[in-house]
């Protein structure tokens, strides 16, 4: 593309270059765990940009149906756009299908396709979708251009590299010679999610203030909020 850089003789004092950057990192971390018949998903409640904390009570969780919750963080304006369009589409589905709720795996694919639609100008977001489908718990995670993969547990956002190893150890039991057999119950999953956030708040400036946790079971979605360090 031809720009002023290609014409150095015009680069004189007074020549103004305009530039617009549509991306910003607003931080935040998200974690989700799938159990046999439940899924737990959590997100911290801090919204920040650089060294400024904008707010300490900001939800990054979006309940899409009675059995699906999406966590989205990264560039907040992109999360906002993406989730509101997704929520509209979820609503449209039930309105055109005799009030039948869209299934979790259908949402997972829809989100992937929507994100890939913006392949050449991506949403700068980290998404994790959790929920239950036909009685079983599932977690789906995404890269910024819509690569979707199903997991049993997953961390995303600014401290994903801090949180994922904890989960690999505690739930994935990765590379252990003698694997302990601790059943994964709802309580243990909630405790693990809480603990990972406590750890992240200790080491990541973009994570803190509080965690919002959604527990998805056959009876619907239960929300809990746990305070974190506020510094």
């Amino acid at each position: 593309m031809l720009g002023i850089n290609q014409f150095p003789e015009y680069q004189v004092p007074g020549a103004v270059q305009h530039q617009f950057n549509p991306y910003e990192n607003n931080g935040g971390s998200i974690v989700a765990i799938a159990g046999d018949n439940f899924a737990v998903i959590g997100a911290d409640t801090r919204l920040s940009a650089g060294y400024n904390i904008f707010t300490r009570n900001h939800s990054k969780l979006f309940q899409l149906t009675s059995s699906a919750v999406l966590a989205s963080c990264g560039n907040w304006c992109d999360s906002d756009t993406l989730t509101s369009i997704l929520q509209t589409r979820v609503r449209q589905y039930s309105d055109t299908h005799e009030n039948k709720e869209i299934s979790l795996n259908a949402i997972a694919q829809l989100l992937s396709t929507m994100m890939y639609g913006r392949r050449f100008f991506p949403y700068y977001v980290s998404n994790i979708l959790a929920g239950i489908y036909e009685g079983k718990g599932y977690v789906y995670s995404y890269d910024p251009i819509g690569h979707c993969e199903r997991h049993t547990y997953r961390a995303g956002g600014s401290s994903s590299a801090l949180l994922q190893p904890i989960l690999d150890n505690q739930i994935g039991l990765k590379n252990m010679e003698e694997k302990p057999t601790i059943p994964l119950t709802v309580d243990r999953a909630v405790k693990l999610v809480t603990d990972t956030f406590i750890s992240a708040a200790e080491r990541d400036i973009y994570t803190g203030d509080g965690v919002k946790i959604s527990i998805i079971t056959e009876n619907g979605v239960e929300e809990r909020q746990i305070p974190l360090r506020k510094d």
Partner: peptide, 17 residues
């Protein structure tokens, strides 16, 4: 933005060349 939901081979163009 989401033209690929109905026409799967067409992706939305970015606002720059």
């Amino acid at each position: 933005d989401f033209i690929n939901l109905s026409q799967n081979k067409v992706l939305s163009a970015p606002p720059y060349s």
